[in-house]
Design a protein around this nucleic acid. Structure first.
Length: 535
RNA sequence: GCGGGUGUAGCUCAGUGGCUAGAGCGUCACGUUGCCAACGUGAAUGUCGACGGUUCGAAUCCGUUCACCCGCUCCA
């Protein structure tokens, strides 16, 4: 399955366009066309419907420890700047990078260590990637730089201990980690992964704010509000769908890595003792969701992160990954991450930014020994009225990308098959086999021919159906051609008015995948479509 | 950010310094047909990615830039 064909169909049929295309496009930004917007709305609606509105909070779902409540939320894109300091995004997303002009490699400024070394009457700051073996690496590298052999190791005179590159002001005296040349590193440049903007008329540090890089934090800071206003007991899930922004260095692969994207996130708050079970529950439930909507099992994998990839407080993180056609054989791209976040987020917003490398979690301190980022000071713990127990809930976070899911459904739907034409000769057909609930258009209505009163009947059926479903009317050209056009947009059902309709008030309903036609009464059409969408 | 490739009609692409820039598919109209990409006739559609340069003359050569694809790099 080639990605080019899928991209081409998306453009041609109106699923996806490049943003600002007439001006040459903008890297990492994509627009949804008439069909794309319907598809994406359906993806989000399917998620919201199953996770939130149709959630059964009276029963214990398969694999769940207990029943639980679900609520929705819609927060602003711009939030108080302190939110991002306590969440860790501010520190994490403000990387300074240096480039090596010789090797074209890029390093994080704070992840290169080095030492001042003198030899042969010269002095240089020799660097190596920070790590356990940095002292040996620096020594080896220094020998190379000064053109010395191992036996002359005593000629190297160290001036001071290993320090971070950030403490060196003059980069012209620095030797990059993968080169012999001195002064090949550029000045550190800031890579702002969060989009910056200004609140208020004055543009200065005072009013600096950020476009959210994830929707999750809006849920954490509103946790208490939702709890207080709904009278729910834990466990409670809070869901949100919304835009997020990340200034990706290399947007690539169609909409897969975009700078503006939409997330579908749940923060699930539960008792710490049950968090392991809930983690397992959500991991399996979310995987099933993709299967329900037609992603085949062999193109979807669950990848559990290894223990050393996890933050210390986390029991587990699993990615649901899809074999996108633009990825190499055997490689997968992330659709959704399900992580156990412990009480890291709520406590950080209470006490101040915690250090994720500590266990148990401790407040991260600045150079002055005070908290690096102050929290809100508000009590975000939960008191169980029945048991009287008071605790800070643990959080399970299933975080899905709406655009990535939509792209996966597009890729999965794309099929080329062989179907007979009117002479019985096999012709190739492009068909988008969307799950009927996701399909942008649910049904098309055709008069078999544009005469004998058929268009009039068909138009009336069309207008009736339009009140309940996204439907499409077409009377132009041969009916076979109209069927094929609907196949290409993924319309699951075609309703055709023919000669017999005028006699007995029946039409045919054609199935996109089997091409089978069934004769049904006009008054039953809506019910038949609804029944097929529901099953 | 680096290296390589690409950019011409809605889509796929041809066109290597010289007439008004082409094909297939698609789109539209009319006629004919009447259940799975029919046929005939006719029509519309291009800042040749953008900017600048060389030239009597540039889609074509040169420079810059933007976007996409591939490989590095990066990736909460």
């Amino acid at each position: 399955m080639s990605m080019e064909k899928i991209v081409s169909l998306c453009k041609q049929r109106g699923f996806l366009f490049q943003s600002s295309e007439i001006y040459g496009g903008l890297q990492g930004f994509w627009d949804y066309g008439p069909l794309g917007v319907e598809l994406k709305r359906n993806v989000k609606e399917a998620w919201w419907r199953e996770m939130v509105n149709c959630h059964d909070d009276m029963s214990t779902l398969p694999g769940a420890p207990t029943p639980y409540a679900m609520e929705g939320l819609d927060c602003t894109i711009i939030m108080h700047p302190q939110v991002w300091k306590c969440s860790g995004h501010y520190d994490l997303f403000h990387d300074y990078m240096v480039d090596c002009k010789e090797t074209k490699k890029r390093y994080r400024h704070d992840q290169l260590n080095g030492r001042w070394v003198q030899a042969k009457g010269r002095k240089a700051f020799i660097t190596a990637p920070a790590g356990d073996d940095e002292v040996e690496l620096i020594q080896k590298h220094a020998l190379k730089h000064f053109g010395l052999r191992n036996k002359n190791i005593d000629d190297l005179v160290y001036d001071g201990d290993v320090i971070c590159l950030t403490e060196v002001d003059d980069l012209s005296q620095v030797v990059g980690p993968d080169t012999k040349a001195i002064g090949s590193l550029t000045e550190p440049r800031e890579f702002n992964l969060m989009f910056k903007t200004f609140v208020g008329a004055l543009s200065g540090e005072e009013g600096t704010a950020f476009l959210r890089p994830e929707t999750a934090q809006g849920i954490f800071v509103n946790f208490k509000n939702v709890l207080d206003s709904t009278r729910h007991r834990l466990p409670l899930g809070i869901a949100q769908i919304g835009k997020s922004f990340r200034n990706e260095i290399t947007p690539r692969n169609f909409t897969f890595r975009s700078r503006e994207f939409e997330q579908m996130e749940i923060e699930f708050f539960c008792h710490p003792d049950q968090s392991q079970d809930w983690y397992t529950f959500w991991r399996d439930r979310r995987l099933d969701w993709y299967h329900t909507y037609g992603i085949s099992e062999d193109r979807l994998i669950m990848r559990e992160h290894a223990q050393d990839e996890l933050a210390h407080y986390s029991i587990g993180t699993a990615d649901i990954e899809y074999a996108f056609p633009f990825m190499a054989e055997g490689e997968f791209g992330e659709l959704e991450g399900i992580s156990h976040r412990g009480d890291f987020d709520l406590r950080s917003h209470m006490e101040g930014k915690l250090d994720e490398n500590t266990n148990p979690l401790e407040l991260q301190l600045g150079e002055d020994g005070k908290p690096k980022w102050k929290g809100s000071g508000k009590d975000l713990s939960y008191r169980d009225d029945l048991s009287g127990e008071k605790y800070i809930p643990h959080v399970i976070e299933p975080s899905a990308g709406a655009d990535r899911a939509t792209l996966a459904f597009i890729c999965e739907a794309y099929h080329e098959d062989q179907q007979p034409d009117e002479n019985g000769k096999m012709q190739s057909r492009t068909v988008m086999k969307f799950h009927p609930r996701l399909a942008p258009i649910k049904a098309a209505v055709f008069p078999l021919v544009k005469k004998d009163g058929m268009p009039e009947v068909a138009k009336k059926i069309y207008l009736d159906l339009k009140k309940r479903f996204k439907v499409f009317y077409d009377e132009k050209g041969a009916v076979g051609r109209r069927y094929r056009r609907q196949d290409e947009t993924g319309t699951p059902y075609c309703i055709t008015v023919d000669g017999q309709t005028l006699e007995d008030q029946t039409v045919t309903i054609r199935d996109r995948d089997t091409l089978q036609q069934q004769r049904i009464k006009i008054e039953e059409i809506a019910a038949v479509i609804q029944e097929r969408l529901d099953r």
